[in-house]
Design a protein around this nucleic acid. Sequence first.
DNA 1: TTTTTGTTCTATACATTATAGAACAGTTTT
DNA 2: AAAACTGTTCTATAATGTATAGAACAAAAA
Lengths: 126, 126
Amino acid sequence: MITIDPNSDVPLYMQLRTQIMEAIVRGDLSNGDTLPSVRALAGDLGVNMHTVNKSYHELELKEIIEIVPKKGAVIIANKNKDISKNRLETLSEEFRPFVVEALVSGMKEKELHELVTNVIKKIQEG
Amino acid sequence: MITIDPNSDVPLYMQLRTQIMEAIVRGDLSNGDTLPSVRALAGDLGVNMHTVNKSYHELELKEIIEIVPKKGAVIIANKNKDISKNRLETLSEEFRPFVVEALVSGMKEKELHELVTNVIKKIQEG
DNA sequence: TTTTTGTTCTATACATTATAGAACAGTTTT
DNA sequence: AAAACTGTTCTATAATGTATAGAACAAAAA
């Protein structure tokens, strides 16, 4: 189930793209599945069509879905594929500020690994 | 050394607060050290005084520095202290979207741990 | 044929980011 | 004591990002 918090400081389109990714990780959405139309999902969530559209295009940029014009959005994320070097580099840069924050807060490498493990568990639980 | 990229999509004040945290992790700045005045640092970096001020107040919110009105900003981050439960919870929430992104890109738990380890190395190198 | 699809365009409203200048009241230095 | 420096507070402006809205288009699906 996808939920959106309008009062969050996280932009709606970011919340949506993360929620869709979480659904894929949980297995609620699988390779080949089709996402609802931008108008349909916008109606369900009570947000604007363009907001959903933006989320879809971000997911396309991340190579998680494929948008076929006039048809729909299909999930192409393969959880078992090898991650590309480029993608790995991008992820490292995205992680960096938060790793810094953790280190300066007194966390050690081992504790950071535990944190990551716990976050993974939370995501898979739903 | 602190460097700022005006063309980055990351806001200047965020870049600065991360850079200061990195300097602490590297050991370039230690507990008790005083940060430059907002005007001095703004002059060095070529940014506005209020931008530096915002960075300092964000660091104060994270309990990394202490701002004494009319005096200056002192580093109180103790890299060896225990992290608070509250802080740990916040960090988990901040990590979540990126962990999701990693998982959906095909990364396994072990690979994520390796990524974190590599990021830590990068930070400590400078 | 009608409906639905993503796309594209213009438009508005609001928040965030960044800069700028001025003034204030304490602190430090000279 | 005087001067310089400190963080704070205030108003102001400009650019950008976020979100909504409505309309129209052409292709696909029902």
